[in-house]
């Protein structure tokens, strides 16, 4: 099979999609069935996950598209991807991650 490099990047994006969507849906379901406060750690985990995942997806997409897009559409497509990802990548996760770690250290085990 040719173009395995492209297939690998597609797989990476697909895996990240399933992972982030599963976490987002779970957290929304938790908010809906209880309340925002009791789901606060889940919300932080989801925010941090999505921010990190989005960066990786953008990198994989740019690698992939710069090899499979045609020359005359490439710049347009890559600009769109860059702009859309940037709009959603504004979150500063340093504080969020510290809070996650503090919650885990207090529980002394995995919790969510």
């Amino acid at each position: 099979m040719n173009e395995q490099e492209a297939l690998m990047r597609l797989a990476d994006i697909a895996i990240d999609l399933y992972a982030m969507e599963s976490a987002v849906l779970r957290t929304i379901k938790a908010i809906e069935s209880s309340n925002i406060k009791s789901a606060s750690l889940k919300i932080k985990l989801t925010e941090a996950l999505v921010t990190d995942t989005l960066l990786r997806v953008e990198m994989n997409a740019r690698k992939l598209l710069s090899s499979v897009a045609s020359e005359h559409t490439k710049t347009y497509i890559l600009n769109n991807i860059f702009n859309r990802c940037s709009e959603l990548s504004v979150e500063d996760t340093v504080g969020t991650k510290r809070e996650i770690a503090e919650a885990v250290n207090q529980a002394e085990d995995y919790i969510s």
Binding site: I13, D16, L17, M20, E21, V24, T27, I28, T46, E47, V50, T53, L54, V57, R84, C85, L88, E91
Partner: peptide, 9 residues
């Protein structure tokens, strides 16, 4: 934001 990110991906 996270839901939009899923759609974007």
């Amino acid at each position: 934001r996270e839901q939009q990110a899923v759609t974007l991906v």
